[in-house]
């Protein structure tokens, strides 16, 4: 495993485009801290984000993982290009000739996906911990380590998203088209969801949608905005009642992991069957 990871890391380390994207990604992740400086000024509504309790433990875990996950597209580019380029440079063929098995090849890419997801999760953990220690009013250990399941959800979200990218990269063989295919899949999912919502009741629709690859991973971390004090005030003023659950849905965790396994196995099956 170490050998495969070091092979993969070596390929990435010397690729300037990938390096720039990765640095940019972690740079942006650190910029979450800047959110604290945001002030919303909408006529009568005036609040400073940092004062809305979003940097309070344990809410900060939910909030930061939700927004950090938006940046995953940068790493998706790296992942898709790292498999698609091996096709266009024919280095996949050379790797196999040099004595890497097809299984080892797919595993090395998967380990890289896990490594990147893990690095992102640890990074978000550290950034959030620092921000929390600065802005949180309650700094007791029990408070700090509450709701860490959002980090687990974040990790799984990245893995399932990147696994899908890995599969697309291997299937389509061209970076740009693979990204395009992911986008098309996303739109198709939206349309199918919309279509079934016409004929089925809300709960069944929600259930079916949560088995889709994008939807299952997207809803791993529920939108935290309604949890903000300011937003709750506004919604109370407007008479809306938010009674939704903000927990990480276990069902989605399972579905996302199943999709990840399917995508990784699918990538292996494709490579195994193909003549290169």
């Amino acid at each position: 495993m170490i050998r495969l990871l070091s092979i993969e890391f070596f390929k990435l380390r010397h690729n300037r485009a990938s390096k720039v994207l990765v640095i940019f990604y972690f740079g942006l992740l650190s910029c979450i801290a800047l959110i604290s400086a945001i002030e919303v000024n909408l006529g009568p509504i005036n609040f400073k984000l940092a004062e809305q309790g979003l940097f309070e433990f344990p809410l900060i875990w939910h909030f930061n993982t939700y927004f950090a996950a938006i940046l995953k597209f940068f790493l998706l580019l790296v992942i898709v290009s790292m498999v698609a380029n091996e096709y266009s440079n024919k280095t996949l063929k050379q790797n196999l000739i040099d004595g890497l098995s097809k299984k080892e090849y797919v595993l090395s890419k998967f380990y890289m996906v896990v490594a990147m997801s893990l690095a992102s999760t640890i990074f978000v953990f550290i950034v959030s911990l620092i921000l929390g220690l600065i802005y949180s009013t309650d700094k007791s250990v029990s408070m700090i380590f509450t709701d860490l399941e959002y980090l687990v959800a974040f990790f799984i979200k990245l893995i399932s998203f990147f696994s899908m990218g890995l599969f697309m990269g291997i299937w389509i063989k061209r970076s740009a088209f693979a990204i395009g295919a992911l986008f098309i899949l996303y739109i198709i999912e939206g349309f199918v969801g919309l279509f079934i919502s016409f004929s089925l009741d809300r709960e069944t629709t929600a259930f079916i949608k949560s088995t889709f690859p994008f939807n299952s991973s997207e809803s791993l971390i529920p939108n935290p905005i309604p949890r903000l004090e300011g937003v709750q005030e506004i919604s109370n003023q407007l008479g809306g009642v938010y009674a939704q659950s903000y927990d990480v849905p276990i069902f989605n965790v399972i579905v996302s992991l199943v999709w990840s396994a399917l995508f990784i196995y699918g990538a292996y099956a494709l490579i195994k069957r193909r003549d290169l």
Partner: peptide, 11 residues
């Protein structure tokens, strides 16, 4: 082994 064309990482 060398097959047809040399395949290496261009960068």
């Amino acid at each position: 082994a060398i097959i047809e064309r040399p395949n290496f990482y261009p960068y």
